[in-house]
């Protein structure tokens, strides 16, 4: 299992080429179509003749594409890590209710903020949303992990995840009943999932935090492979199980929490992308899957975002709708072929 054997080299080159192509397309498409040649120029830091295009690219589409990429990478890797940790092909941030947990955290903070009297502005506010999302995500993640020690059945864990999602949404409903309409509106807009409107400062924060998380995961790829053989065998090979599980869990909680705080809950990407990677690479080796999932996650999210712009029209549909359209059928497919899935 040397890193990136020759037979996968072509796969990776193609994925990298595809990544840049999708990025270009993503930036070019929108209510104002910009020729691909011009976006290419922009990416090469050349000034465009058309000032409007320059403004649209610099102020809107480029930061949005950066958001989409980091969300795709972060959520997809989180999905991969969760599937390995739970040894469950159906695991993913949205399916197991981790995103709902983050939402609940944010709901408590936004709608309850009148009770704890926090002012509604600025960077401190944004950071508090982030913190509450992380706390919510880690809470649900911990709960699911404890339950998964007791329940080995894949589908049962899935059902518990769905129930937790239902539970959090009903708690959120109760909260929204008692809150002011202004706060409710604030929360609902957040919940739609929005990848635009992020400032370059916020993006720097997203990339740093997700980057640190992914960097730490690098050192856990080997134990993650062993975990696929079962905890007992992994332990017998010298893997520190608890340490590995706890570290990975915290990384997933923080990544999902932070991403959810900034762009709202985004469904199914974390679940679907690792499976697409396994289909293409036909391996369970994390040394291969990890970089593959990072690339594929960005590509899939870029495609979803491009589709949500409804090319050649001025309408925009929520990106969540697009990811669900792709993800939900995949879950059904997975359940149908339960017997011979691999993780």
């Amino acid at each position: 299992m040397s890193p990136v054997p020759k037979k996968y080299r072509l796969h990776f080159i193609l994925l990298i080429v595809m990544f840049f192509m999708m990025w270009l397309v993503n930036i070019s498409v929108g209510s104002v179509a910009i020729p691909i040649g011009e976006t290419f120029k922009f990416l090469l830091h050349q000034n465009l003749e058309n000032d409007t295009w320059q403004t649209i690219l610099e102020g809107l589409r480029f930061p949005k594409s950066l958001t989409v990429i980091v969300v795709g990478m972060g959520l997809s890797v989180s999905g991969l890590l969760m599937q390995t940790l739970f040894r469950n092909p159906m695991a993913g941030p949205s399916v197991l209710g981790i995103s709902s947990g983050a939402s609940l955290g944010v709901a408590f903070f936004l709608m309850g903020s009148s009770w704890w009297g926090i002012s509604n502005a600025g960077w401190g506010m944004q950071m508090s949303i982030v913190l509450s999302a992380i706390v919510g995500a880690l809470g649900v993640l911990g709960l699911i992990l404890i339950l998964s020690y007791k329940i080995k059945n894949t589908l049962s864990i899935l059902i518990i995840g769905l129930m937790l999602s239902a539970l959090t949404s009903s708690v959120i409903s109760v909260l929204s009943y008692f809150t002011t309409s202004q706060k409710l509106q604030q929360y609902i807009f957040w919940g739609f999932g929005n990848v635009s409107n992020l400032t370059y400062n916020e993006l720097a924060f997203l990339y740093t935090s997700v980057g640190i998380g992914l960097f730490i995961v690098l050192f856990f790829l080997k134990p993650l492979n062993s975990l696929l053989l079962g905890e007992n065998l992994a332990q017998s090979m010298g893997v520190n199980i608890r340490f590995t599980q706890n570290t990975i869990l915290i990384i997933v909680g923080v990544i999902v929490g932070i991403l959810t705080a900034f762009v709202g809950p985004i469904a199914f990407i974390g679940l679907a992308v690792p499976h697409i990677a396994r289909l293409i690479f036909k391996t369970s080796n994390h040394m291969i899957l990890f970089p593959a999932v990072i690339l594929l996650g960005s590509i899939v999210m870029l495609i979803c975002d491009t589709l949500s712009q409804l090319p050649f029209s001025e309408q925009v549909i929520p990106i969540n709708a697009v990811t669900s359209l792709i993800g939900a059928p995949l879950v059904i497919l997975l359940i149908l072929k339960q017997k011979n899935y691999s993780i």
Binding site: L228, L233, T283, S284, N285, Y341, S342
Partner: peptide
């Protein structure tokens, strides 16, 4: 308990011993 649901080859499986 024999490991299930993975896409490892026999060689990769045995190579786990070297981890």
């Amino acid at each position: 308990e024999v490991p299930q649901h993975n896409d490892f080859t026999v060689y990769e499986m045995v190579a786990f011993g070297r981890q």
